[in-house]
Design a protein around this nucleic acid. Structure first.
Lengths: 160, 160
DNA sequence: TACGATTAAATCGTGCACGATATATCTCGC
DNA sequence: GCGAGATATATCGTGCACGATTTAATCGTA
């Protein structure tokens, strides 16, 4: 019943129908929920992600952290320096390969894990989702990310 | 069959299982796909979102734009000044209420819409999603955002 | 009309994020 | 062992994003 669009009609979705905008806005919304919780332990959201990564696996290199978090050294280096200045971790060149810097938790950084313990439950509650729905959504978004990453790699490969 | 956790076991999800991290990473991935497309028309991603908003509705105030994009004036003002310097829009105080600034597209800003025409299809392709799946995911994430926003409002209302 | 309260933008300081580049170290072929 | 290329991190400049504060205009009410 609806009039079929002419073949070369440009795609002009409304801002609030764009998936990328939904993701962008959800990121903002998550940040706002995390803010008061993280303020209480003195971390920003990206700093919290780094601490989560280190609590899961200590002693990683800057590059390995960057790969897990999709961040460049130009972002991580100053961020890690701030965490180091707070006393949560140390940064030291690997004695075997002095190119790489290993990031290690201090006892204070380990201890912070206990203070951050209640955060995930608060966030889960704020999402208003049941665990299975949350897991499904998480997987859908992760699959989307994988597709986008592949697309940007293919686009940038400069095939000749 | 699995051992039930003790009642006060802290929730310690892995970084790569966190919904917030999936959103964070998807935002990065979208940015990477958009980057080459937007470079071609000289916009950053947030600038593109502002232009999308204005193409949809011209002459909005800074505050109204901020509400649609969830951005503060402290973010928008310099961003809009950059777009103004590029010649895509004008910023002028409303003569009826001199507190508000109205943002209007220039002919150049209108014309940019044609150059940006092919972008949505490129992005759609990069997601690897069929339209119905994309719409569903978009709605799920929008609903999540609404929940998160409500939670952060309730948490911050200082009920006495 | 006059004045306190509210509203809208702008400004300031901090931190994240990227790309381009620099610097130091390592690896491989010889 | 030596030098060319590769690798890992750091540095620099630009722009986004926020909260706190400032400035200016408007509104309400006496």
């Amino acid at each position: 019943m609806t009039k079929p669009p002419p073949p070369s009609e440009p795609l002009r979705p409304r801002l609030d129908q764009l998936l990328c905008f939904a993701i962008y806005a959800a990121g903002h919304a998550f940040n706002r929920v995390y803010k008061p919780l993280l303020d209480a332990i003195g971390l920003t959201y990206p700093q919290y992600l780094v601490m989560l990564a280190l609590w899961e696996q200590d002693g990683e290199t800057v590059g390995a952290l960057g790969a897990r978090l999709s961040l460049e050294s130009s972002t991580l280096t100053p961020l890690l320096k701030r965490l180091e200045a707070m006393g949560h971790l140390t940064r030291a060149r690997d004695t075997r390969d002095e190119r790489v810097v290993r990031v290690r938790l201090t006892p204070q950084g380990q201890a912070l894990r206990e203070k951050a313990q209640s955060i995930p439950a608060c966030i889960l509650d704020a999402t208003g989702l049941a665990l299975p729905d949350l897991a499904r959504l998480q997987q859908d978004i992760t699959a989307l990310t994988a597709h986008l990453e592949q697309a940007s790699l293919v686009a940038g490969d400069g095939r000749s």
